Simulated assay, not measured.
Amino acid sequence: ASGIAEPDRVAAYGDRRHIRPDGIVVAVDATDVVNRAADRIYGSLVRRQAAAADLLLVTKADLTRDDGMAARSWCGDVAVGTPVVTSDRTGSDMWVGQVLGSPQPAAFPAPGTGLDSTPTVDSPAMNLPVETLSVLVDDRLDADNLAEALSLLRDRVGSGLLRAKAVLSEADGSHKAVHLAGGRVSVEPAPRSAPGILVLIAAPGSLDGVNLSEALRVTQDPEEVSVS
């Protein structure tokens, strides 16, 4: 799960599907977790995500001026006693060995009580308001151009634009995914084609007055999927 998900509730759902979790790993974006946690609307969710973790993985520490120190300190304050590791700055997955190969398994909770058990989640769902929009991207627009348009939209809207994703077919037949997450826009190869639909998740009202058809060069006006 990513973005505005609640890890403890996602893990509980997996258990009901006979996928018994051994623990919850929450990735903490070192570049903006402190600011996100202070957000008036969504800060409580950010703190809950960290508090639900059995292991906190600090990512993008190499992109910060303090090498992720502020993020690690925040983790220690919000989730007292929860193990914190930092992902390798080369982008490798060596941290996986730190988790699965830990010489101190007692630091992590014991597995669930059985495949037929129904785990409990102590706190209710947070039901935070979000606005979801779906737009059809112009088939002449490639991934790099969409990424540039998303970057400009992010700069205009600010932190109110929470998440965006689209998979586009390129002129050479390849497929690329365009992501906006944690305020960063990225382009990466995608395994399959998609109809060129861009999904945006934003704080309610943050996109008011923005002509998305023009800003994102889409072929039709955005369709409001849900506001909750």
Rank of each mutant, 00 (worst) to 15 (best):
L128D: 04
R140M: 12
V130H: 10
P119R: 12
P109V: 08
E131F: 02
L133D: 04
P105H: 03
T113N: 04
T118H: 10
P124Y: 01
A125W: 03
V121R: 01
D139S: 12
T132P: 01
P111D: 02
E148K: 07
N127E: 12
G114M: 08
P129V: 11
L146T: 10
L115T: 11
M126T: 00
V137F: 06
Q104M: 05
L146M: 04
L146N: 07
L115R: 09
P111V: 09
P111L: 08
A110Q: 13
D144T: 11
D122I: 00
Q104K: 09
S117P: 00
G112V: 04
S134D: 10
A125R: 12
L136W: 12
A110F: 10
E131Y: 07
L146F: 11
N127M: 02
T132L: 06
T118V: 15
D144N: 12
G112C: 02
T132H: 08
E148L: 15
V135F: 02
P111N: 02
S134T: 11
G114R: 04
V130C: 04
P105N: 05
T113V: 08
L115P: 00
T120D: 07
E148M: 11
P105D: 09
D139T: 13
V135G: 00
A106K: 08
S134H: 05
V121F: 00
Q104P: 00
V135H: 01
P129H: 11
A106M: 11
E131W: 04
V137S: 05
S134A: 14
A125V: 03
D116I: 02
A125E: 08
